[in-house]
Design a binder for these strands. Structure first.
Ligand SMILES: NC(=O)c1ccc[n+]([C@@H]2O[C@H](COP(=O)([O-])OP(=O)(O)OC[C@H]3O[C@@H](n4cnc5c(N)ncnc54)[C@H](O)[C@@H]3O)[C@@H](O)[C@H]2O)c1
Ligand SMILES: NC(=O)c1ccc[n+]([C@@H]2O[C@H](COP(=O)([O-])OP(=O)(O)OC[C@H]3O[C@@H](n4cnc5c(N)ncnc54)[C@H](O)[C@@H]3O)[C@@H](O)[C@H]2O)c1
Lengths: 216, 216
DNA sequence: TTTTAATAGCGATTTTTTTCTTTATTCATA
DNA sequence: TATGAATAAAGAAAAAAATCGCTATTAAAA
């Protein structure tokens, strides 16, 4: 498909590029056409040079005294992240969080399309949640294999996470987006990206404590 | 309360400590009593020295040839993160994600207790979701002020996020946990911690692409 | 009791990431 | 057409984070 040199993008840069993208989309809707690092730095409370380096790493050029064309930046980031072609994914565990992810339409514009969900609960199996069909967990591995699904989203309770991850891998899934607070043990080529909301909240609390110390 | 020197903990360390904590809880439930950095390093696919440094920063000591007492590590991390006293919080935007967060009981063991939620939707106002009362958004600021709530959780659609954040600040809220994909503009002392699931997924995709390059 | 192996501890080194400094480019204005 | 101001670009420096190498300590084995 799209031939990219596949250079290594620093992970902090990668994450920030996604955040810039979201914001630039909003600026665009408000009629903005170009944006400077100075402005972005103020909006995000970051260093302007850092943003410039990030865009440079993404291969984006600006013009002095003007800034960057927003549409060009958006297009570059989308291409860099591979959002131009969407990846099909399975989701396991249609609970509170799983259902929320199923209903989040923005994901399809961010490279992921959840095409089916799997659960153990008989009350959920056979239904559709946010338009996505829910199947029995036993169907997951065979279906993944048949449909060549490569991405699995794991939103089951922590004690079940390892078992369900093993099923995903058995079905040929290569990357697991893990929301369960556990350390998944997976063989070498499998990619795991874990989301830890608790970590994020810990950062919030920590900063709040520091802020209070400063002012008192 | 608990008098801590409030040293600066590197943010990567802080996040990892939370992850260690979750895992150690599980090891404890399985009857484990001590754990070594070597084992943790294998479980998390991290460098053993890094884990040792993290624990050192958290002020945790181990014994050679044995490792660390799991209960001591858990206690130290909880105390360090301030999970021993729970912080009350308000949540704005009881949609898919907001409702999922409302129903997540583990949060109370991680320093945050959502005591009420707020929304614009008349169908939701006056109801209880996962046992938490939902009030009209207009009540948020006055109630926050009266109840001295300092933490706000923002799960409204992106276009509404800035407005609702302003309301939170008007109510005396000092820290905002933001799930909306937007760049909140807040005055100096206000702390904002944004969660970007899209960034996390971008990391997953990126690693998957690299993994594929390696093997092919 | 001695030896061995596993592990924590600690300082040094390397790598990565961020920030600073300087230069070059472009647009607006006189 | 010059001048000034804002900005990107590029390289250097600094800061932060991760990793390495070595030493000390401890428990188990010999
Ligand atoms: N809800 C949140 O806000 C939140 C936040 C952070 C992390 N998480 C994590 O996300 C995961 C899901 O949380 P939740 O609140 O949605 O839980 P939940 O209890 O609402 O949902 C769990 C779902 O998984 C299903 N399930 C259980 N065992 C299964 C199995 N073996 N195979 C397939 N499905 C199975 C259940 O039937 C249920 O539908 C948990 O690991 C939780 O720790 C949740
Ligand atoms: N659902 C997800 O998986 C997911 C993932 C990542 C980020 N997010 C972000 O989280 C936020 C919420 O997502 P969601 O899927 O729950 O959306 P949703 O549409 O399901 O819920 C939004 C809720 O906010 C309420 N609301 C709207 N305007 C409001 C206002 N001004 N004041 C108070 N409440 C208001 C709505 O009535 C609704 O209940 C969005 O910003 C979304 O981008 C969601």
């Amino acid at each position: 498909m799209s031939e990219r040199p596949l250079m290594v993008i620093p992970q902090p840069t990668l994450k920030r590029l996604v955040v810039y993208h979201q914001w630039l989309k909003q600026l665009q809707e408000r009629g903005r056409d170009v944006v400077s690092c100075t402005v972005l730095a103020r909006d995000f409370k970051l260093d302007a040079t850092q943003i410039r380096k990030d865009l440079e790493i993404a291969g984006i050029a600006g013009t002095p005294r003007v800034g960057y064309r927003i549409d060009a930046v958006i297009a570059s980031i989308e291409s860099l992240l591979g959002w131009t072609n969407v990846n099909d994914a399975f989701l396991a565990g249609v609970g509170n969080l799983g259902a929320a992810l199923l209903g989040y339409e923005r994901f399809t514009r961010q490279g992921v399309n959840i095409i089916a969900a799997f659960d153990l609960d008989p009350a959920k199996i056979g239904t559709k949640i946010h338009g996505k069909p829910v199947f029995s967990l036993t169907k997951m591995a065979p279906l993944a294999q048949r449909m060549k699904i490569k991405i699995g989203i794991l939103t089951v309770p922590a004690p079940a996470a390892q078992t369900v991850a093993d099923l995903m891998i058995a079905g040929g899934i290569e990357a697991i987006w893990n929301f369960a607070p556990t350390a998944l043990q997976v063989p070498e080529p499998i990619v795991v990206e874990s989301v830890s909301l608790a970590s994020s909240f810990a950062v919030l609390l920590n900063q709040l404590q520091h802020q209070r110390h400063k002012t008192t």
